[in-house]
């Protein structure tokens, strides 16, 4: 499944990385503690979080995540989006809470 499919099916807004949506999604990880995500998320996964500050981009790059989904309309600042574009980290947004996005993505990936 590509990121584009996930965006469409989960009705996500693309805040950065619209040219990177052909990337493959291998799974997901949900969490707001950066150490936890660093240790436990895996290459190719999307990260579901309420954290919208600039350092999420570093975690995305270092952990080789396919993208980051911000929940409940969390909105990053311009500097974060600029960095995300530079580093090729797609940032997506939803108005739903983490539980719902995680459940929807889980089902989608197991269809």
């Amino acid at each position: 499944m590509t990121l584009a499919d996930v965006v469409q099916r989960l009705e996500l807004k693309v805040l950065s990385g619209s040219e990177l949506l052909e990337r493959e999604v291998t799974g997901g990880y949900t969490g707001d503690l950066l150490s936890d995500v660093m240790a436990n998320a895996d290459t190719g996964q999307v990260w579901i979080t309420l954290q919208a500050h600039i350092n999420i981009v570093a975690v995305g790059v270092l952990r080789e995540l396919t993208g980051i989904i911000l929940i409940k309309d969390r909105t990053p600042d311009e500097a974060t989006l600029t960095k995300a574009k530079q580093e090729n980290v797609p940032i997506l947004q939803s108005d739903r809470p983490a539980f719902e996005i995680s459940g929807l993505l889980f089902n989608l990936l197991n269809e």
Partner: peptide, 8 residues
């Protein structure tokens, strides 16, 4: 900011 879990 999501730091301070004492996991580092």
């Amino acid at each position: 900011m999501g730091f301070g879990a004492g996991m580092g």
